[in-house]
Design a protein around this nucleic acid. Structure first.
Length: 289
DNA sequence: AATGCGGTCAACCGCTGTCTA
DNA sequence: TTAGACAGCGGTTGACCGCAT
């Protein structure tokens, strides 16, 4: 007795239902994909704004690609990870249709596996050579130094959007129009600072860096690091210089079709999405599903 | 057919950076 | 100038699935 019954709305967690997805898509169509707390409240989804954003970015966004990584994508991930480390969102910007989460998962699963295999291989013939040949003897710093001095295939000639040049990724879906100018300014600033930051960021080492040390040279060979983007070999520093293609993302995320690079939305969800755009009926939708 | 194991991926958590009042 | 709110990011977890035994 006396215990105040707090009828606090349970914040839902865990897997999303189809209804929730649909609801979220509707509201993102209406309000854009920026104000997530607002969307979370207004939509009636008992989810946090964060949760809504994650669901949208990682699953519901029209620009998402599905399916396995192509060898080209694999290679790009490796290359960019070698340069940027675990900056998954940044890497993801270079791979339209792929999310940071996806790339992160990919890296952790595939590279860990490769690392294990490599370790095993090393163990089996470690007796002969005490210093691992491709990795530099000055162990932990070796990767960062190599990234600035070694020759590596550039990613810049890729037909992919480039965040460093203001070309939008599916992360920037045009939801916040007001601050576009600010974003531009920020991007410009980023351009200037990114390199410096990169250098700083390379000052620490993560588990992934260690795997990278173990595995990268071999993996690059594995997936045939030959000419892919019609490319000459240039220093990785060139990568951020930004001779980009003219790729741009449509302003309306719900109408996004990545025609030029064969990104498409085959899911029925996107059809629903379009319907929702045409007929915003959201509040009473439940009965109509 | 049942069980165990490893891989995959969606989702959450906590932290950081940015914006705004 | 500052504090609170919010968005974004990276790390981690856990459920699910397929394969091997």
């Amino acid at each position: 007795m006396g215990v105040p019954v707090q009828v606090q709305e349970e914040i839902r967690k865990g897997p999303w239902t189809e209804q929730e997805d649909f609801q979220l898509v509707c509201f993102v169509g209406l309000f854009g994909d920026r104000r997530w707390d607002f969307i979370a409240k207004v939509s009636g989804l008992n989810r946090t704004g964060k949760s809504c954003r994650l669901r949208w970015v990682n699953y519901l966004h029209p620009g998402l690609k599905r399916g396995k990584m192509s060898p080209q994508e694999e290679r790009l991930v490796l290359e960019l990870h070698a340069k940027w480390g675990n900056r998954w969102s940044r890497i993801a910007r270079k791979l339209p249709g792929r999310t940071d989460n996806e790339i992160k998962n990919y890296w952790r699963t595939h590279m860990r596996k490769k690392a294990q295999e490599k370790k095993r291989a090393n163990n089996s013939n470690s007796s002969s050579s005490s210093s691992p040949s491709p990795s530099r003897s000055s162990s932990s710093n070796s990767m960062k130094s190599s990234s600035s001095s070694s020759n590596i295939t550039t990613v810049e000639s890729l037909p992919f959007p480039d965040s460093t040049t203001g070309v939008e990724s599916f992360y920037d879906t045009g939801g916040r129009v007001v601050s576009a100018a600010k974003d531009d300014q920020k991007k410009a600033d980023d351009d200037g600072q990114e390199k410096a930051r990169d250098d700083q960021e390379k000052a620490y080492y993560s588990m992934d860096d260690i795997w990278k040390e173990i595995v990268l040279p071999e993996v690059l060979n594995d997936i045939n690091m030959g000419p892919f983007y019609g490319t000459e070999l240039v220093g990785v520093n060139d990568i951020s210089e930004g001779n980009n293609n003219n790729y741009s993302c449509p302003a309306d995320p719900l109408m996004t079709v990545w025609d030029d690079h064969h990104y498409y939305c085959s899911d029925s969800l996107w059809k629903m999405d379009e319907e929702a755009n045409k007929a915003p009926f959201f509040f009473g939708y439940e009965g109509s599903l």
